[in-house]
């Protein structure tokens, strides 16, 4: 069912599975969960086109853009950490991971500021169907980011205490896969709520 890993070692783990099998069970569960939520979003959108046409104008595009830049940049730093670990440079990998954490920690901060801004502008959970969808999906995503940040702390400790090497860093790659998947989901959420008129 699975192809063998490539010779150049670009994917860590067995049978071409980046990281380990367990993380991919989690990632597929995450993708399934959000696929269902996206179907709910589109069902609501086709039944309430006016609310979804006007919706993005009520949200802070700056906050949505800031969190997109944060997610992409934190993801990039984690990818650089994996590259560094492949060269057996765990000190450099740790620095990339710290950069990823500091950047990623900006996500819940921006989210908190955004929610305060929303409440001040009447965008609340009990609002119209667009606002309900927005809170439902983005809060769920925030939960996934929070788990990711906790996982990142663990990975930083493991890296700092010499838990990974160029030959064995599947835990780091597993975390990176989860973090990139969470980034990928945000890239779908961003246009749905902040961009698409």
């Amino acid at each position: 069912m699975f192809s063998p890993p490539p010779e150049d070692g670009t994917v860590s783990g067995s049978a071409g599975i980046p990281g380990n099998r367990a993380i991919w069970v989690g990632i597929f569960a995450e993708l399934t969960e959000f696929t269902l939520m996206f179907l709910v979003y589109f069902f609501a959108r086709i039944n309430h086109p006016q609310a979804f046409h006007e919706g993005p104008q009520k949200l802070s595009l700056a906050a949505g853009t800031a969190n997109t830049v944060i997610m992409l940049t934190s993801s990039y730093f984690v990818a650089r950490a994996v590259l560094a670990m492949r060269r057996d440079c765990s000190g450099i990998a740790l620095r990339w991971l710290i950069a990823a954490f500091v950047t990623g920690a900006g996500y819940p901060v921006v989210k908190a500021l955004e929610i305060r801004w929303n409440i001040g502008h009447g965008v609340v959970g009990g609002g119209d169907v667009f606002q309900m969808s927005y809170y439902y999906l983005t809060f769920n995503h925030l939960v996934h980011v929070s788990w990711g940040l906790l996982g990142l702390v663990w990975i930083m400790f493991r890296t700092g205490f010499g838990g990974y090497s160029a030959d064995n860093h599947n835990g780091l790659v597993a975390f990176a896969s989860y973090w990139h998947a969470t980034d990928l989901i945000w890239l779908m959420i961003f246009p749905l709520f902040y961009v698409l008129p």
Binding site: M1, F2, P6, G16, I17, P18, W24, S75, A79
Partner: peptide, 12 residues
């Protein structure tokens, strides 16, 4: 590019 899935198992 980030997940490097172009090198991973075709199923994934």
């Amino acid at each position: 590019q980030f997940m490097e899935l172009n090198h991973a198992s075709p199923v994934i």
